[in-house]
Design a protein around this nucleic acid. Structure first.
Length: 203
DNA sequence: CGTTCGATGCACT
DNA sequence: GTGCATCGAACGT
């Protein structure tokens, strides 16, 4: 079942927690890819220094100010697309960054797309659990690009669905990969999951 | 094991 | 011109 707008029109931390286990599905002409969310981060409002809305409304962050349930996709470091789900009421800029998925469908297609990255030329195929490990990697594996910015996640080719996956042990940790706002424990992960990004725990 | 650093494009100042 | 919600290779210990 596809998540409705009401799912996203809620406090962002609740949405982030509830997105764990939900399934991102993207249907393209190349085929279908899908993966269950195992890592997500909340970015909330102009007072959150790490949120793109911290500088006030701009062309780039406009989607954050729009209605919930849409994709906010942007390019980072000139190389990596980032997928967010816009949350809260219109006018309240906030979103959840999808940071990692457990691949479920279309693994071969994901592998092909990952291998297509310039820096992967001549390298061995990406292991299954690493196909969607990290926000840049998952977008590349799923074929999500800037062209998908503002797309509704509630209908159409790019959706997030509830397929009944539940997780008992969800951890809240500091957000990673940012230079400010690292004090906030707004990163939700499935504890110990192999596809969660960041440094791995020891054996 | 750990840390450093280059690639790369666009929005923003 | 600057800096970035990254990735992965290269290097140091």
């Amino acid at each position: 079942m596809i998540l409705s707008v009401d799912f996203y029109r809620r406090p962002t931390l609740e949405v982030a927690r509830d997105l764990i286990g939900k399934v991102v599905v993207y249907k393209t002409t190349a085929g279908i890819t899908a993966g269950a969310i195992v890592e997500a981060e909340a970015y909330i409002g102009e007072d959150d220094p790490a949120c793109h809305a911290a500088v006030g409304p701009t062309t780039r962050n406009a989607p954050l100010y729009g209605p919930p349930g849409r994709a906010y996709v942007y390019l980072n470091y000139g190389l990596h697309d980032m997928l967010n789900a816009v949350t809260e009421d219109e006018g309240h800029p906030a979103a959840v960054l999808i940071r990692a998925l457990e691949p479920l469908e279309g693994l071969a297609l994901m592998r092909r797309r990952r291998s297509r990255a310039p820096w992967r030329k001549g390298k061995p195929p990406v292991p299954d659990h690493e196909l969607c490990r990290g926000p840049g990697n998952l977008c590349r594996a799923m074929g999500i690009t800037l062209a998908d910015n503002l797309r509704p996640l509630t209908r159409g080719p790019l959706t997030i669905q509830d397929r009944g996956i539940t997780h008992e042990d969800i951890a809240w940790d500091p957000r990673i990969g940012i230079r400010v706002g690292t004090d906030k424990m707004w990163r939700a992960t499935v504890k110990g999951h192999r596809s969660v990004s960041g440094r791995r725990l020891k054996a």
